[in-house]
Design a protein around this nucleic acid. Sequence first.
DNA 1: CGTTTTTGACCCGCGC
DNA 2: GCGCGGGTCAAAAACG
Length: 322
Amino acid sequence: MESFSWINTSLDLNTKPLKLFNDELHLPPVPPSPKKKDLPSNVSGLGTKNLSVKEETGALVEELNRVSEENKKLTEMLTVMCENYNVLRTQLVDYMNKNPEKEISSSKKRKSESSNNNNNNNNGNIGNSESSSTDEESRKKPKEETIKPKISRVHYRTDASDTGLVAKDGYQWRKYGQKVTRDNPSPRAYFKCSFAPSCPVKKKVQRSVEDQSVLVATYEGEHNHPHPSQMDSTSGSSRGVNMAAGSVPCSASHGSTVTFDLAKSKSSSNDRVVKPRFEAPEMKKFLVEQMATSLTKDPNFTTALAAAISGRMFQPNSTEKW
DNA sequence: CGTTTTTGACCCGCGC
DNA sequence: GCGCGGGTCAAAAACG
């Protein structure tokens, strides 16, 4: 039951062109920690070659084409991944429908807690009300097809040496308890969202029994407030943070059909924006973390990145084209 | 000084 | 009814 497979987010990037590009410019290898004062002396030889400007622009255009093609490929890959995920999720839901007695024993919560939730939900009809009422209903009528898990589980890979139980998902959490459970020697930490009680989301974080370097975070409920990292960026025109959060590839490719809705929810009143997005911020974060990890671990990527940065540093004028 | 973390006590559901 | 175990509370400590 508990076995899970990691999404292979290793993108196997085609980093060669960047290296070639670097070589074509006859640039010196990037020093480990280049000081900016050294730059002019390094570049001085480059600036004299006016003849090679055309070659360079040609190479740039070629490179641009390559990159956009690669971008297209990546987008397609991500789309396929999203679709695969949806298929898997559908299968899981089907499976759980066929085996109702095995699934989620999560609804055996305290009475007081559920009453609290109801109180909250009566006041503000925001997003989460649907899921908790579903929880109530599912307790009364377990045979209905309402298996919409408001509980999602996310796995974070961390350093094995990192002893903390901090799953960095961007939200602010307040720890309210810690327990050593029977089946797992490592303690389980209990967190509430810092916006509690207005935001009823809770999470449990515990290291995996099988792999101590894996943090298993179990989320209960949905945040009824925007992601903290998005609050600053949404107001301005720059969407840099959002792009970094990884929502772009799906929106760029497939419109609203591609959604990660682990914690299935009808669109809340907050969702005025028409832009397609991952429904579960945890899932989004998870994907981003995975991609970031696999990217940073990939020496090809780091060298390519260094080459790209150095290329831009030596050609400050060309930045306008990007 | 306000907020967060720690940690032992307590609550509650479940199985026997 | 009792014990067990997971989840939560809340006072004290730690922290910024």
